[in-house]
Design a protein around this nucleic acid. Sequence first.
DNA 1: CTGTTAGCGCCTTCAG
DNA 2: CTGAAGGCGCTAACAG
Lengths: 348, 348
Amino acid sequence: MATLRDVAKAAGVSVGTVSRVLNDSPNVSEAKRELVLKVMKELDYQPNFMAQNLGRKRSQTGEFGVVITGIDNPANAEMVRGATEEATKHGYTVMLCTAWTTQEIKRYLEAFIRRQVEGVAVASYMDQRTLLTVAELQTRGIPLAVCIDAEWPVAKGGKEHNFDGIATVAFESASTCEQAVQYLIALGHQRIAIIAGNAELNEADPRVMGYKNALQKAGIAYDRRLIFRGGSDTIMTGYRSMQEILARGRGISAVFGFNDLLAIGAMRALHEAGLRVPEDMSIMGFDNILMSGYVNPSLTTINVPKYEIGRDLIKQLVGVINDEPISHECLGTNFVVRQSTGLAPGSV
Amino acid sequence: MATLRDVAKAAGVSVGTVSRVLNDSPNVSEAKRELVLKVMKELDYQPNFMAQNLGRKRSQTGEFGVVITGIDNPANAEMVRGATEEATKHGYTVMLCTAWTTQEIKRYLEAFIRRQVEGVAVASYMDQRTLLTVAELQTRGIPLAVCIDAEWPVAKGGKEHNFDGIATVAFESASTCEQAVQYLIALGHQRIAIIAGNAELNEADPRVMGYKNALQKAGIAYDRRLIFRGGSDTIMTGYRSMQEILARGRGISAVFGFNDLLAIGAMRALHEAGLRVPEDMSIMGFDNILMSGYVNPSLTTINVPKYEIGRDLIKQLVGVINDEPISHECLGTNFVVRQSTGLAPGSV
DNA sequence: CTGTTAGCGCCTTCAG
DNA sequence: CTGAAGGCGCTAACAG
């Protein structure tokens, strides 16, 4: 493994000059630059990354760390795509970590810090605990960008967190959820259940907020027994939650899955139970993953700008690195009506 | 940012001692160890990763790099899960890179090398070019593990590659594909099309081999016009390919998608065209992603041990690091019959 | 424009 | 068991 010193010696110049051509310094004569470049090639010289960044004040690793919770959710994959493409555009590389628990996220965050990535983006909806963990990064001086629900965090009783030092990309979903639930109500649905998966269930969740608002405006009482948690955001959980709903049988005619995977799993359970969607039960999801347009029946859902979120997270990180002021952005969501929702049974 | 020297000074010991406790050397008295640990905590000391690995002969970064092509394919996500869990078990962390092109893969591989990961696993089916790129890693002395088709590479005319220095996890799919196609033939299907997505189409592809073998044994002529490529392994491509198949109308009654995403997209196109699966057309996939059991109708497919592949890739890397001999492994696949395949129309 | 000289923060011999 | 000294490969001031 040739070193910078070897190159200098072989080229008959000083290490300083070699270092300069390595770092594209303009203060090198074209002749020497070419000479050095040639020698580097001959010796198959590879700069030592560790050594390079050891002596630098602000390390330039050319890498961003991106954390997502659950690679198995296509919605996350889409955010990663946005982040990766944007990073590439700026000459950065994305290191991805998939962590399922707060514990793991913390571990990976530490790995990123050690590796001195130039910024970290968290491209998944986080709960409070996770956010606090992530926020520590600020103190280490690493630019941070997170994706949050627009109305979050306002959980009563929860610790408020100050986002001053953190770039955020938020998406507004409460009003869209409200609109979606109003749509279900307009179709005659009175008892609308929620399959919440792994979501933290508190009044702060924009989806819950939208749901409650719609109910209230329609004069329908909020019944918390209609909310089903399942512990994870997977198809399987959606499937099981629907089985539970069916077993309980509370006259529910519509179900709002907090993500599309949950909703798709729910539809499967319905199918196996011999029930039709939407004739017997309406199903609505959240995220609008690609798959949702291709399942049968296609899924009515709320579209979240996943690609854009990933992209803007990186955009903001790049901004911070270039000493631009930290910014906060809010993207919209929209309701996508497809075939999994219809008139409530008997409401013709 | 406190340094090792600061800790030594504050604790009244030498840097050597601090370094020793940092590296869990047994040659430190319990008293000093505790003292140093305490001081470290007080000073919030964080060892400098770059400095640590600079002076070491064999760097211990505690990280593996994993490359996948397309995070948007749940099959890949599953392999990543296997890899991540296995790595965690051994105290390693996984850095993931999602690259779509050989070009990108190369870039990421270089990033991994620079970062001195302790091993690299490629957890996607690769084509020849990509493999050659990846193989360069060997020359840099970084342990490498790749996932390959069992019969690959044997493409006629293609450069043979020597896998001696590379740990491999292969999966046997030709015979399973053959069995699957035989099943379709037994159901009365004579013209069976293939939606190949982005696969390299050559005789070496085990899936193609299995397909041709089955046809031959049944005395059905191989017609290459029945093979539809689409350029990518996505739902969208499956959807479009099926539209193409429908437009051509060659009396095709069954379609074999080279991955489940392709098959699911194809089913959607059928649905929109007013055709029923499997009554009008049988559909079969490959991979057995979780979703396949939940779409409607559920998808008949070939199960690939995705989790196990990811897991074993890391297992082998760990083995190489521990100076065990490089190994080659072959996992099996199996045919999963569900509801998307049935009797050929008119063959009752 | 170029060469020289200190370190960067840590590990790793060595003596003791 | 402990301390002291000498780099690891490179960048970053400096002088010239």
